[in-house]
Design a protein around this nucleic acid. Structure first.
Lengths: 206, 206
DNA sequence: TAGATTGTTAATCGATTAACAATC
DNA sequence: TAGATTGTTAATCGATTAACAATC
């Protein structure tokens, strides 16, 4: 184990590796090499070896990496060898999709609450959840010690929601609203905006 | 204008700048500085000036950048000064949310078709669209000259769908399936996977 | 004019790649 | 053993930052 600070760009690749390993494992594969894993994820074998070696010697010369072992190690490193409770704020189409999404549970996450400020939505069912009033959000999230949330409200409301999530003790926010949000240094934010992703590709089209 | 190849990492920041400028413009602002824009998006002023200056001299010493002018230029550079037709493949919750999403239209995109292979979904309405049979997809997309698509099918089907999209002439894919997909060099892919984004943050939590 | 801010250069910093000894 | 593949080093490559002359 390396005590130095690991660059965030490396941290960002670990979930990609883990996801590919999960797929391989589902197919019954027991071992892989940096070469093979690299072909799956589109990253050079040298970089994969370098990334992984930041955290320990998890491979074997001549045979490569044990898939279950490396998955365990990556889950440990990423802190997803446990389940994280996640709150969804915004019960529109996207909040609905996230609340019902089956892809979280084998990746370390479970949605546990859904909030909205629209009276016509509060009390309604969304997936397995009853939509709760945003007014109760800070209290509820704080009491449940929830550290992660996803924002699916309109752009105009996103910053205010983020502020309240921070107030409630949330330390990681996945923001689906198409606007940059600002949070204190000890809070992490990731942005998902389909238009932004599409625009990154149209540059190369004509 | 610079004829050299612009690094993709710079291209990736332009949509972020454009999005922030759109917000500023909605608030009635007419000009901004690299300093101010940087505070909004969390990027240094020096980097913003350097990025923008790759494409021309769009600012004025002493006063900064005209917001409408810079938006125009960024739209031109990113090829979103026109509307792009986009196909959605997969009419589950996520496909549904994307088909109805109101955030595309002022960013240069419009969904025009939705496909699924589930007989119980084909013919049903999703937003303004009637779900079409995936069997007709290659033909339909090719005939309509559609160059962009979003994949919201299960991970196990994503690669096969991607292959057929490529066959149909699609050059840019936004993949919501939680699996890496491989495409030819002239096709662009962006991945959106909420679990991956969340895992990138749990590393820093405890 | 004085103040503000760009565009650009050079320096610094960080990330990726190539190569190979070690070793399974 | 022979072949394969890791972990690591050094070299290369690329990105970011700091600083400032130019100029609005």
């Amino acid at each position: 184990m390396n005590a130095d600070k690991i660059p965030d760009i490396i941290i960002g690749r670990l979930p990609i590796y883990l996801r590919a390993l999960q797929r391989m494992s589902e197919k019954g594969m027991k071992t892989t090499s940096s070469q093979e894993l690299g072909e799956h994820v589109g990253i050079s074998a040298a970089q994969i070896r370098k990334d992984i070696s930041q955290f320990g010697e998890f491979g074997k010369q001549g045979t490569g990496y044990s898939i279950p072992f490396l998955m365990d190690k990556l889950r440990e490193i990423l802190n997803v060898n446990k389940m994280w409770d996640v709150a969804v704020v915004g019960a529109g189409d996207m909040g609905h999709a996230l609340a019902r999404y089956q892809g979280f549970k084998n990746r370390g996450f479970q949605v546990v609450m859904v909030f909205d400020n629209d009276a016509s939505k509060i009390g309604q069912k969304v997936g397995d959840f009853v939509v709760e009033d945003t007014n109760k959000m800070v209290e509820r999230i704080h009491a449940a010690k929830i550290k992660m949330a996803m924002i699916t409200v309109p752009a105009s409301a996103a910053q205010a929601v983020a502020d309240r999530l921070v107030q409630a003790g949330v330390k990681a926010i996945l923001n689906y609203a198409p606007v940059s949000i600002n949070v204190p240094n000890d809070v992490h934010v990731q942005h998902i905006d389909p238009s932004t992703h599409l625009q990154r590709m149209t540059y190369y089209l004509d």
